[in-house]
Design a protein around this nucleic acid. Structure first.
Length: 417
RNA sequence: CGGGGUGUGGCCUAGCUGGCUUAGGGCGUCUGGUUUGGGACCAGAAGAUCCUGGGUUCGAAUCCCAGCACCCCGACCA
């Protein structure tokens, strides 16, 4: 993309109505814009990151047999009433339609997905099944905070699985855990994210959270370094030992909850009468699991964790562009010509490039913006580099710069070196 | 929902013990010129319901009351 065509701009001052690092940086760099507390627009750069996270999630969900669907956000009161959540779900946005009909905006979708899947699944032969969606969720938080970490409107991937028995659910549940770790690794948070035991499973003793270590995190977890798993506050207050090694050798850490998975059992299949016929012709309740992961929150978490004083440092797979190509303005037409050529050449090689082709902007300003935006590779073309028939290559997370022959740049960048 | 803080051009802000404010500065924007490897420089210009409503006063951005919005701490978080 040509940066001269990008309608957003970066700003020098931090927004005063935000304190969280992720919101400040993302607003400053033109990735998002705030409309109201906990409600943000995604601008071109931010949407690119968000969509890349979603793409990774889709790939990993598809890989474990998840089938993507899209459910409505406008959910009639009757659906919620079936599980007594119309009255009991504090964070539900409730609204009234023109015909006085009441609706709740989708905060979670068990009440929709269960009757939906029930229409198609009747037999043990139809099980197991797993469906997921990526959709905007609404939660009427009493207090939105921390930028993208806790909004009132946010994106969420929710996967629901349906099984003939508990054993099959348990098997799939473990597969999802592995899949989630792949997702977090690909998003650059692999080393910082820990499976965390939490209460709240209606069918099993525990639910599980995925907690990413971050100094600015709102959660406190207790990490068992030996087992590489953690427990949350509820657990440590109840039993004070690691569920795995049964020792209480914990390190207290701040973290952000980036995912949460539950074994639901029959909690939703029972009220909706979702059962199946087993091999002997008997009627059995369907056993369910649900698995949440928020792309927008994940994006905010990455910013909290991956940055330096100059700006963001996007992990390669979710960066808005792989390369930020900077043309240092020159009186010699050659510089623009060569940079344009390189831009086209890189794109032909499948490299995503943000090309700072603006004529009026000083080199220093371009560098500062490149650091702020945080693409993994910065390429600089100038009279200086062209004198050596080269391009300057710098990785965002490294200090060193390297001169690379123009003819070899595309290879160098695509090779992941 | 309890407690605290903040609200001034698009952004960051000064002014806030009332009058010297025709609301000052910086960023950004526009015009002209100079610059050209780390958010450049000079000159000029445009751009403001001082959050909203009410009150006190000869006079309110400034004081009082009410409301709204945003941020932070706590509570809450299927």
């Amino acid at each position: 993309m040509l940066q001269s065509k990008l309608f957003t701009k970066t700003i020098k001052e931090l927004p005063k109505d935000e304190t969280s690092f992720n919101a400040r940086q993302l607003i400053r760099a033109g990735f998002i814009d705030k409309l109201a507390a906990g409600v943000y627009s995604f601008l071109p750069l931010g949407l690119l990151v968000h969509d890349k996270i979603c793409r990774i999630i889709r790939e990993e969900m598809d890989a474990i047999g998840g089938q993507e669907i899209l459910m409505p956000a406008l959910i009639p009161k009757e659906s919620w009433a079936a599980t007594n959540r119309w009255e009991n779900f504090d964070a539900l946005f409730r609204l009234i339609g023109g015909d006085k009909k009441e609706y709740g905006l989708g905060a979670t979708h068990e009440e929709v997905v269960t009757p939906l899947v029930k229409k198609f699944i009747f037999s043990y032969k139809d099980l197991p099944a797993a469906v997921y969606q990526i959709q905007t969720k609404f939660r009427n938080e009493l207090r939105a905070k921390a930028g993208l970490i806790r909004g009132r409107e946010f994106s969420m991937k929710d996967l629901y699985s349906f099984h003939a028995d508990e054993k099959d659910l348990n098997k799939f549940y473990e597969i999802v855990i592995k899949s989630y770790f792949k997702i977090f690794s690909r998003c650059g948070l692999g080393d910082l994210t820990y499976l965390t035991y939490a209460l709240g499973g209606t069918f099993s003793k525990y639910s599980h959270e995925f907690q990413t270590l971050a100094k600015t995190g709102e959660d406190t977890i207790y990490l068992c370094k030996k087992c590489k798993i953690a427990v949350n506050k509820e657990i440590i207050e109840e039993q004070k030992v690691c569920p795995q090694c049964k020792k209480k050798d914990f390190v207290e850490e701040k973290a952000v909850e980036v995912g949460n998975i539950f074994k639901l059992g029959t909690r939703f299949s029972k009220p909706f009468g979702f059962s199946y016929m087993d091999e002997k012709g008997g009627k059995q309740d369907v056993i369910m699991g649900c698995y949440g992961l928020g792309p927008s929150r994940l994006m905010g978490t990455v910013v909290e964790v991956c940055h330096d004083e100059q700006g963001m440092i996007w992990p390669e797979e979710i960066a808005p562009f792989r390369v930020h190509l900077i043309e240092v303005r020159s009186k010699e037409a050659k510089v623009k010509k060569e940079t344009e050529k390189l831009y086209n050449d890189l794109r032909k090689n499948g490299v995503e490039v943000l090309y700072d082709d603006r004529d009026e902007i000083s080199a220093g300003e371009k560098f500062a913006e490149a650091d702020l935006i945080g693409c993994p590779y910065r390429l600089v073309v100038s009279e200086k580099t062209l004198a050596k028939d080269s391009v300057e290559v710098k990785k965002r997370d490294k200090k060193e710069v390297e001169m690379v022959k123009i003819s070899e740049v595309a290879k160098r960048i695509t090779n992941n070196a």
